[in-house]
Nucleic acid binder design. Structure first.
Lengths: 197, 197
DNA sequence: TCTTTTCGAGACGTAACGTCTCGTCAAGCG
DNA sequence: CGCTTGACGAGACGTTACGTCTCGAAAAGA
């Protein structure tokens, strides 16, 4: 986003305006909801012109996507802890904490909803968020495999489908948050031996 | 939907118009996508007046919800087959078949997207679809429990979260369909003993 | 027959869209 | 230093679909 290549002279982009727009969009979504989020409203709260918004972002949703990355205390740890079980547990708990952060759930809902309507944004959302999250979990599973710690039949793809499937389903289709017992249940499901067939 | 209580006299509801509207909405969504789906377009294709649409459905999404129930070859079997493994396998394969039916995926995406924007429709979607699907899977898990066939630690809620989580995540966040190997993987994950802890 | 309710059709005001045109203001180039 | 380039805030503009409303006709019970 926000093209990097700069060829010639001219006035530079106003970083304050950029941040004002990002926070305005994030806050308005948390307060009033995505349907009432308008480009005109964002520009007004940010004290910016409409053209300034359209110059840098193709869509409201792209603003929120960048705003989410900004809030990116997306610090979901994938550090080596010696065991698959411990790392998966931490990953899930960090994810639960992230979801509990004010405004994150409404923004995630809005982004996924918009990805269903706009095929172009769908691609940007996948590249800029979804696949990055998968990759994070993948490193954990791969390390477990290298360590000989990985349950048989568990592929990185399956782990990602199950973990993110459950998290997104909870966010989109229910009102239930991710509790400690949920973390325990899903961790046990993925780590317990499943040797027979 | 389509209020049932009837008090007095007057002209009766036109069933042909109802079906024409449902199929028009379903087809338009499959063809052009939800964003280009307009009430005016639905009415035009169905040969109906706009007011006729607004009289019976509060929202475009409610039309699709009813249209989906109409296509309700939603025949995902929950019949007793003697073993949890066999029933879960059938449930998943039936679900995969349903998703492969033309138009179902775009409609599901549209419904879930709309549920994120409209809190009122969200409730109707949950009551009219999501919880019904959960209930279907729940009967399988409950029967397994009664049979002594159920893996320890597997609750109906966890099973539903994992199964529907994976299915919805695939539909909403990826382009991958539900293949045979996916069915096998998820079935194995849920049926294999996880005895220790 | 009279009343009630639905029907198709379309006019109406409203709201946000995305494009555009202003005049102004910064930053690099010669 | 002065010219050129591009971003800035502000807002006008035509477009589109919204949801409401009104119309005359048609059906069905009382």
């Amino acid at each position: 986003m926000t093209n990097a290549t700069r060829t010639a002279s001219g006035r530079r982009r106003n970083e304050e305006a950029r941040l004002a727009i990002l926070t305005a969009a994030y806050e308005l979504t948390a307060e009033a909801g995505y349907p009432d989020l308008t480009v005109e409203g964002i520009a007004a709260r940010a004290g910016a012109g409409k053209q300034t918004v359209y110059r840098w972002w193709p869509t409201k949703a792209d603003i929120l996507l960048e705003a989410l990355a900004l809030k990116a205390d997306l610090k979901v740890s994938t550090a080596d802890q010696g065991s698959f079980r411990a790392e998966l547990d931490t990953f899930l708990r960090d994810s639960a904490t992230l979801l509990a952060f004010p405004g994150v759930v409404p923004v995630l809902r809005s982004l996924m909803a918009e990805a269903q309507r706009d095929a172009d944004f769908r691609r940007r959302f996948q590249d800029g968020f979804l696949t990055r999250r998968r990759a994070a979990l993948e490193t954990i599973v791969d390390r477990a495999a290298a360590r000989g710690d990985k349950p048989p039949h568990l592929t990185p793809d399956l782990a990602a489908d199950v973990v993110f499937g459950l998290v997104w389903y909870r966010v989109l289709a229910t009102e239930r948050l991710l509790e400690d017992e949920d973390v325990t249940a899903i961790r046990r499901l993925l780590t317990d031996r499943s040797g027979k067939e």
